[in-house]
């Protein structure tokens, strides 16, 4: 059934480029006022005897990592400033390779900050913090018959705008023998985008706009509700 669906998708969607051996059902996601996160459908083909590792890595941003620890009665946050944290990170593999196995492939770990060959408590904490926000996944690609795979996952509503790079590694005997890359573009659109840009770049205009709106809205609401 899946094979038929995938074959139909491959044939009927010439816009979906299939360079390498995987694709996504969409390459652009728009964040607008109705955005509640978006399901992405990853699918492709794999050669027999080879494993696949597909990594989604979002734009790197500055951030702060907080770790809660109990001091007396309170839970206090310890802070670490970080220069580059991906806005999103997902690792899918077939058959499921544990993260530790992927760590053993240096050509992959060299290219991705969040997965390093040596164990790092800090990286573990970052992954856990991202996982809590729904911004980090480790999962298995679902095999369909022998050579096709699919995976459906959700880009959460707290995703930041920017490109998510999608890397496909073909693995044989723990060596990368083939590599391809695509981009999933996340962009803020419409009113949502305008508000955020205005707040960042023209905060005075944003404030004035908000003040005028709140006065007008409260006057209208008062007038409406008082008359009924």
């Amino acid at each position: 059934m899946f094979k038929i669906i995938l074959t139909i998708i491959f044939i009927s969607c010439p816009s979906i480029s299939l360079s390498g051996k995987f694709s996504l059902d969409k390459f652009n996601i728009e964040i607008n006022s109705n955005f509640l996160g978006e399901e992405v459908f990853l699918f492709g083909q794999k050669d027999e005897g080879r494993d696949l590792i597909i990594i989604f890595e979002g734009t790197e941003k500055q951030g702060k990592l907080f770790k809660k620890s109990k001091k007396g009665l309170f839970w206090i946050n310890d802070r670490k400033d970080l220069d580059k944290i991906p806005s999103f990170f997902a690792i899918f593999s077939t058959p499921k390779k544990s993260i530790n196995e992927i760590f053993l492939i240096p050509s992959i770990t060299r290219s991705h900050f969040l997965i390093q060959s040596s164990y790092s408590e800090k990286l573990y904490q970052i992954r856990e913090a991202l996982r809590v926000k729904g911004l980090y996944f480790e999962d298995e690609l679902q095999s369909v018959e022998e050579s096709l795979f699919i995976k459906k996952f959700k880009i959460p509503d707290n995703i930041s705008a920017g490109n998510i790079k999608v890397y496909l590694y073909e693995i044989k005997d723990n060596e990368v023998i083939n590599f391809s890359q695509k981009k999933l573009n996340i962009q803020k659109k419409g009113l949502t985008s305008k508000f955020e840009t205005m707040l960042e770049e023209q905060s005075l205009v944003y404030a004035i706009f908000l003040v005028v709106f709140s006065i007008v809205f409260s006057l209208i609401s008062n007038w409406l509700f008082k008359r009924r």
Binding site: K61, Q62, G63, K64, L65, F66, K67, K68, S69, W75, N77, L82, I85, S87, Q125, I126, E128, A129, L130, V132, K133, S160
Partner: peptide, 10 residues
């Protein structure tokens, strides 16, 4: 807390 770690982007 349910989660000990939290990330805030700057």
């Amino acid at each position: 807390p349910n989660n000990l770690y939290r990330i805030d982007y700057v």
